[in-house]
Amino acid sequence: MALYADLDALRASAADVRIVTSDGQTIAAHSYVLASASPVLERMIDRARCRGWGAAAVLGVPSDAVLAFLHLLYSSDAAVVLARSRRLVAPGTEELVAAHGPQLLALAHVYRVGWLKRAAEAAVSARLTADRAVDMLKLARLCDAPQLYTRCARLAAKDFAAVEASDGWRFARRHDPALELELLQLLEDADSRRARWARARASQEAYRQLGQAMGSLDRIFAATGGGTDDDAPSQSSAGPAGTCAGDGDDDATCQGLRLLMRHFATCARKVAPGGCARCKRMLQLFRLHASVCDRPEQDQPCRVPLCSHFTAKMQTEKADKTWRLLVKKVTRARAMAGMADRQVPEVVAMSWARYSTSSKWARN
């Protein structure tokens, strides 16, 4: 590798400091290179010189990792690469970082080499496996590596069976209960987060369907033209005469509303004690439509039954907080659906066509 050749060439010059590893190996180096790369090494070298020593100890990792660490510090074009591109390490050093990722992450954290720490963290995260998730989680916690920490937590939540069968998990259960508790808490948080997201998606889908129902009511009674907004839906106005203009979900929603209104028009239990659950649901839909209807603000008559009745009632009676929140969310869902279905301007479509070979504008 060219990087090793560069280091060997520098070693031929006058080396003024020696790096001692855990196994007693000594590596000749240059103080100005190490001091410019790491403020911690700079202080260590200055302290060693004050005491008359010519060596600095880099302990805790194998000598191969220390040698790789020094090779990366000697990379003369690393700073240029970082300044001019988005790459984390210099070209040709990715394999070196990948081979000693955890050790380089620990060394870069201890000796405050920021660019190398980011590169090692990315390399370890990209090659993370379930059998090493617990060990790397502890390393990420010790080295303040949030990207690696999050990656370990997600992998443990995704494949906990494989993580539980690893040696790291068995060691943590026997000797590190704090780490075991932390990992279990992460799994519980992940489960809670997934459940919360599922509830949020279900709520958004319900608001979207209610927004579709409001639009379907407008289309049904605009098509029938029957009845006034103060009349209850009759057989003629709410029956099958109303047409549903739409496909897919809109058409299914419209057909369901027509069946519900047909039941409402003929049901005799809606005035009986206790009432009818389906009729109550229809009345709630009429009330919701009156809450989101914007035609009275535009001085336009609304053909949906009971719209003006519920509008006048809302002006005299204040709705509860839950109902106001429902109206707000349904209104927002309708607005978002309208933005998604709006026609794209021709100028915007032509600009998009530059990046899409399948566009009709690109074919012209």
Rank of each mutant, 00 (worst) to 15 (best):
H263G: 01
T26K: 13
L7S: 08
T26Y: 03
V66W: 07
W361R: 10
D230R: 15
Y4P: 06
H263L: 04
K117L: 10
R208G: 11
R334H: 01
K328V: 04
Y32V: 11
T311Q: 13
P305E: 06
D299N: 13
A15L: 02
Q235C: 10
S234H: 02
L128S: 05
E182R: 09
F221Y: 05
D8Q: 15
A83D: 11
M314Y: 07
V134L: 01
A206H: 08
P91G: 02
R269N: 04
D23I: 03
A90T: 01
R269M: 08
D294I: 04
S351L: 14
Y4T: 12
P91W: 01
V113C: 12
Y32A: 12
R87Y: 09
S237I: 00
A12F: 07
M336H: 08
S291G: 13
A195H: 10
Q103W: 10
S192E: 14
L259G: 13
W115E: 10
I27W: 00
K117E: 06
W53G: 15
M339V: 13
T93Y: 08
E317L: 12
R86G: 15
Q209D: 11
A172H: 05
G256V: 02
R295T: 03
A333T: 08
D159R: 08
A241S: 15
A130Y: 01
L183E: 03
C307K: 03
E182Q: 10
S22Q: 11
V40M: 02
M339D: 15
E180K: 05
D249M: 06
T150Q: 14
H71Q: 15
M339T: 14
K158V: 07
D135G: 15
L3N: 09
D64E: 15
A98E: 15
L104T: 05
L88N: 09
S125W: 03
D320I: 01
D218I: 00
V17K: 07
A108S: 14
E94G: 06
A78Q: 04
Q25W: 00
Y355F: 14
R47H: 11
G242V: 00
A223I: 00
S216G: 11
G227P: 02
C244P: 06
Y207M: 11
R303S: 06
I220L: 06
C267I: 02
C152L: 10
R278W: 10
G338A: 07
V58M: 10
V347R: 15
W169G: 11
W352Q: 15
A245Y: 06
P39V: 09
W352P: 09
A200R: 14
A161C: 13
F160P: 09
V327L: 12
K280R: 15
A55D: 10
A48F: 03
Q185F: 12
R11A: 10
T129R: 15
Q212T: 03
D8S: 14
F310A: 04
S203V: 08
A290W: 00
A122Y: 05
P62R: 01
K280Q: 15
A272Y: 00
L107K: 05
G60H: 01
P39D: 08
P146H: 04
L155H: 01
D46S: 13
V58P: 04
W115V: 07
R196I: 03
A29H: 07
R193F: 04
Q343E: 14
C293Y: 00
V80Q: 13
